[in-house]
């Protein structure tokens, strides 16, 4: 399978209905005491409309325009794949480059607000090779944020190990962001701040310059139509609400199903 991420970029076409066609059925009264088929089938016009809803998903169109740009030497659309039968003495399974993650707590507005992003997206943004060339900006409007919050994103009770390593990533990301951006404030909100500070007590000086808050994020709302994100989090038994220009959620990685299957088949751990 040639890999494709789940979140596909889709253009809304406006010439077809957005909801799917409903199957017409005979009424409940007509069903009692007999076995007449319940669903009566799409009328022709409905079927054609429904078929037109198909996006005809396709990546390369095979139009050959790239080839026409003087690339006959380097491009060939019809190089066949290769099948190899190989024998090994040992296998090491690693998690690969999927970067899939467990669902994010819906209240945090990921997928609703374009300025709520994952730690993985933030990581790419911080890279000089990344989409913004290392510039920290809000994907909502391209502006440089003044206040960023980095929070724990999963909705379930978590294992300590995950909370810890994701906080380390969050801290590292804020170190890089602060280094690259002027007049930036970063708040890190995590339920394991205390133990984190204890473990990294030798780096106390570096950590003290970061705003680390022991707490759990509760919900996110947009203030007005174009306003900042308003984040509510619980800390010390109380709820607090603050405004931010960018929210980064720390994700819990999810191993891809094919790697899980491989691990199960060979009865071997993932490294």
């Amino acid at each position: 399978m040639i890999y494709e991420k789940e979140k596909r970029y889709i253009i809304p076409f406006t010439d077809v209905p957005s909801s799917r066609a409903e199957m017409p059925e005979i009424s409940v009264d007509e069903r009692r005491g007999n076995f007449t088929e319940v669903e009566t089938g799409f009328p022709e016009a409905v079927a054609v409309q429904e078929a037109k809803r198909c996006l005809s998903c396709r990546r390369c169109l095979g139009c050959g325009l790239c080839l026409a740009e003087d690339n006959e030497d380097s491009i060939d659309f019809n190089i066949p794949g290769e099948e190899l039968n190989l024998e090994f003495d040992e296998v090491i399974i690693t998690k690969g480059q999927d970067n899939a993650f467990h669902p994010i707590k819906p209240e945090l507005g990921f997928d609703v607000y374009a300025d709520v992003i994952t730690d993985l997206q933030f990581e790419r943004m911080l890279s000089p090779n990344g989409p913004t060339g290392g510039l920290v900006v809000s994907p909502l409007n391209g502006e440089i944020p003044g206040r960023i919050a980095i929070v724990q994103g999963s909705s379930n009770e978590e294992d300590e190990k995950h909370l810890f390593s994701s906080l380390v990533l969050g801290v590292n990301e804020s170190i890089l962001a602060l280094d690259k951006t002027q007049d930036l404030e970063v708040a890190l909100i995590s339920p394991v701040c205390q133990s984190f500070k204890e473990k990294f007590s030798s780096d106390a000086e570096q950590i003290s310059s970061l705003g680390i808050i022991e707490g759990i994020p509760e919900s996110v709302e947009r203030k007005g139509e174009e306003g900042p994100l308003s984040l509510t989090y619980s800390t010390g038994g109380q709820n607090k609400t603050e405004d931010f220009d960018l929210l980064v959620v720390l994700t819990k990685e999810k191993i891809s199903p094919e790697i899980m299957e491989l691990s199960r088949k060979l009865d071997q751990e993932i490294q």
């Binding site: 076409f13 198909c54 005809s56 095979g62 019809n78």
Partner: peptide, 24 residues
């Protein structure tokens, strides 16, 4: 005849490809 991969398009599929280019 089909594209470079030999996929023959229906009118609908072709229109979708064109729509995509139009919008973007």
């Amino acid at each position: 005849k089909g594209n470079f991969y030999g996929e023959v398009f229906t009118e609908h599929e072709f229109n979708r490809a064109i729509d995509m280019i139009i919008v973007e």
